Lab assay of single mutants.
Amino acid sequence: FSITQFVRNLGLEHLMDIFEREQITLRVLVEMGHKELKEIGINAYGHREKLIKGVERLI
């Protein structure tokens, strides 16, 4: 299971460039909250919320 699959499953594949540029893996994403996601350029609250909720389902 990769970050690419995870992001695609959430319908947020347009954010993949950010994850690749910042070298974010699923392991790193698990540790990130709204503040960190915003810092790397994910400005939409809804997108950040989707990512965080998606990660919570993985754990």
Rank of each mutant, 00 (worst) to 15 (best):
F1M: 15
F1G: 09
F1I: 15
S2W: 07
S2L: 09
I3P: 03
I3W: 06
I3S: 02
T4S: 13
T4V: 13
Q5D: 15
Q5T: 11
Q5C: 15
Q5M: 11
Q5R: 08
F6G: 01
F6R: 00
F6D: 00
F6C: 04
F6V: 05
V7F: 07
V7N: 00
V7I: 13
V7E: 00
R8S: 13
R8V: 13
N9G: 12
N9W: 13
N9I: 14
N9K: 12
L10Y: 03
L10C: 05
L10P: 00
L12I: 05
E13H: 10
E13N: 09
E13W: 10
H14K: 09
H14M: 14
H14D: 10
H14V: 13
L15K: 00
M16G: 07
M16I: 12
D17V: 14
D17M: 12
D17E: 12
I18G: 01
F19C: 03
E20V: 14
E22W: 09
E22N: 15
E22F: 10
E22V: 06
Q23F: 08
Q23M: 11
Q23D: 09
Q23T: 07
I24H: 02
I24K: 01
T25Y: 04
T25A: 04
T25V: 05
T25I: 04
L26C: 09
L26S: 03
L26V: 06
L26N: 01
R27G: 14
R27C: 15
R27D: 15
R27V: 09
R27H: 13
V28I: 12
L29S: 01
V30C: 12
V30K: 14
V30S: 14
V30W: 06
E31M: 13
E31P: 08
M32H: 01
M32V: 03
M32E: 01
G33V: 03
G33I: 04
G33P: 01
H34Q: 03
K35A: 10
K35N: 09
K35W: 06
K35S: 09
K35M: 07
L37G: 01
L37S: 00
E39M: 12
E39K: 11
I40W: 04
I40K: 05
I40E: 00
I40C: 04
G41A: 04
G41E: 02
G41Q: 03
G41K: 05
G41R: 03
I42P: 03
I42W: 02
I42D: 03
I42R: 02
N43Q: 12
N43H: 12
N43P: 09
N43C: 14
N43S: 11
N43T: 13
N43K: 14
A44L: 12
A44N: 15
A44R: 10
Y45T: 09
Y45Q: 11
G46W: 13
G46E: 15
H47A: 14
H47N: 13
H47R: 03
H47M: 10
R48A: 06
R48P: 02
R48D: 05
E49H: 08
E49Q: 11
K50E: 08
K50R: 13
K50A: 15
L51G: 00
L51K: 02
L51N: 01
I52S: 00
I52Q: 02
I52A: 00
I52P: 01
K53M: 09
G54F: 04
G54T: 05
G54L: 05
V55Y: 07
V55I: 15
V55F: 08
E56S: 12
E56T: 09
E56G: 09
E56L: 15
L58M: 12
L58N: 04
L58C: 08
I59S: 08
I59T: 12
I59D: 05
